[in-house]
Write a protein that binds this DNA or RNA. Structure first.
Length: 468
RNA sequence: GGGACCAUAGGGUAGCUUGGUCGAUCCUUUGGGCUUUGGGAGCCUGAGACUCCGGUUCAAAUCCGGGUGGUCCCA
């Protein structure tokens, strides 16, 4: 994968995931195959979220007055908001913003819903599309003007402690989610100058793309009482006093799918973790002029046995040569392939091919094929995950000096270094090296090391990288 | 925020410098037909493009201006 950008662009097109030729910059069509991947991904996500939250749906449009209420927040988004100004030919009295994110849509409602500590906590999420007028060059799934899959959770609590705990819960949820997709990640606390506009602090998940640039794939924000003050979200506590609520919010987006594609893909194409692959195994009957019926009959029997076990299976009966089918399904990333031809039938065996290792495994037809496939799927999943983490490990270097950091990052590395944590020092580092500080990877560490930039005692282990 | 480059069938390209030979090249894709089928099949026969608007000119895929879209670099 010499040129990741090019590879990524081609794979979206060739594997029928999205079509970015839609005539609006930064907006693309989810094609059926891609949509199935997206749906499977969301199914996993919803299963996780539903244990902790209620799913809701808020309107797409936000009155200008609400959006403008929270000054710091609006400043972070004002240059990228789309506005609805007309209804038909009539100019609206008040402009309506198309949500860039939903805090200002949700929180006025939270203010109505929260009266007493009994009403707390509120934990809700929604999966919606959001719009941002990106001015930088857009990239499908990574930097888009319509984020088609914006999964945002918002919580309200009666104490700062509880909100802080919720941040940890959010992090744990996302860990499980990314683990399920076999995506390796780095967790860091974003520098103060890079936190979510209006948040007290931001915890972020980044994954390292094949070219060494990092991609932010999830964030968890502790909002403190900032928005509660702005939107008057107050509750009566047990003592009968009115108090401002504490909030968190956290979200993931289309980028998760980009990360899954990038984490596992190779020269042959896509490689999907069994969890999100629309089909987990493809049966390819090898048919000659004679003896086709027996092969088909056996394939159908196997298909039913696999379905009975809850395995997502398809049979490719197209009238083309088997080799073409192999290439097609390797490109589309199906984890396993099942081949059966007359020769196999005579020997009472079949071949299972693994997409991840390329291995061809001969199995006896007397075996419990469905059981064997289920085992293999589990193995593939584990091995893809391990592989992804191993690749990430190779790309991280720990440095004592930042002298060559720019060159090292250009070689596709992510840098760990001991840092004092000071804002001015951090900004100076970014300025002088041209590399971003992702954030603090490990806090309050005990070390004799000093900050390589300012020489003060190091307090944290921080991460630096080129970012998407 | 600043800059560079690019736009030809569904995808990838040749042609543009020096306007006419373009009725536009090749690969892929694709409809129909026959033979095939254990790693991208072969033959026959069809289909499919000069990004948009304006300008220069006897003549524009080719030159000029702008729009839109794309790619990349720097902050």
């Amino acid at each position: 994968m010499e040129n990741f950008s090019e590879w990524f662009h081609d794979i979206l097109e060739n594997a029928d995931i999205t079509d970015s030729r839609y005539p609006i910059k930064g907006m693309a069509v989810w094609r059926p195959y891609g949509f199935q991947i997206r749906r499977a991904t969301l199914n996993i996500f919803r299963d996780l979220m539903d244990k902790e939250h209620d799913e809701t749906l808020f309107p797409l449009l936000i009155p200008e007055a609400e959006l403008a209420k929270e000054g710091i927040h609006v400043k972070g988004f004002e240059d990228e908001v789309y506005w609805v100004t007309h209804g038909g030919q009539t100019e609206l009295n008040e402009k309506l913003a198309i949500r860039p994110t939903s805090e200002t849509a949700m929180y006025p409602m939270f203010a109505l819903w929260v009266r007493s500590h009994i009403d707390l906590p509120i934990k809700q999420y929604q999966v919606v599309n959001t719009f941002r007028y990106e001015t930088k060059h857009t990239r499908p799934l990574i930097r888009v003007r319509e984020i088609t899959t914006f999964a945002e959770a918002h919580t309200v609590h009666s104490s700062a402690e509880e909100a802080a705990e919720q941040v940890e819960t959010g992090i744990e949820l996302y860990k499980k989610f990314f683990d399920g997709l076999g995506i390796a990640y780095l967790i860091s606390k974003r520098p103060v100058w890079d936190k979510f506009p209006g948040a007290e602090y931001t915890m972020a998940f980044d994954t390292i793309m094949p070219d060494g640039k990092t991609l932010q794939i999830g964030t968890v924000h502790n909002l403190g009482q900032t928005f509660a003050h702005t939107f008057e979200i107050t509750f009566e506590n047990k003592e009968g006093n009115h108090e401002y609520a504490y909030q968190t919010c956290y979200g993931i987006s289309d980028r998760v799918i980009a990360a899954a594609i990038a984490a596992h893909g190779d020269e042959k194409g896509l490689q999907l973790p069994p969890e999100i692959s629309p089909k987990q195994i493809t049966i390819i009957p090898i048919i000659f002029k004679d003896g086709g019926e027996e092969v088909m009959a056996k394939c159908n029997e196997i298909k039913e046995a696999l379905e009975a076990k809850g395995i997502r299976v398809q049979m490719d009966t197209r009238d083309i040569r088997p080799g073409k089918k192999f290439f097609d399904w390797e490109l589309k990333g199906t984890p396993l392939r099942f081949e059966l031809g007359p020769r196999d039938l005579n020997n009472n065996v079949a071949i299972i091919g693994r997409r991840d290792t390329g291995e061809k495994i001969e199995i006896s037809l007397d075996e419990d094929v469905a059981e064997k496939v289920a085992e293999l799927l589990a193995e593939v999943e584990e091995s893809m995950k391990a592989n992804s983490w191993a690749k990430q490990e190779e790309k991280i270097v720990t440095l004592d000096s930042l002298d060559n950091v720019s060159d090292i990052v250009d070689e596709g590395k992510v840098v760990k270094f001991y840092w004092c944590g000071d804002e001015e020092c951090g900004k100076a580092i970014e300025e002088e090296t041209g590399v971003d500080i992702l954030g603090i990877n490990e806090e309050d560490i005990q070390t004799d090391k000093v900050c390589p930039h300012c020489g003060k005692p190091a307090k944290h282990l921080a991460l630096m990288a080129k970012t998407y």
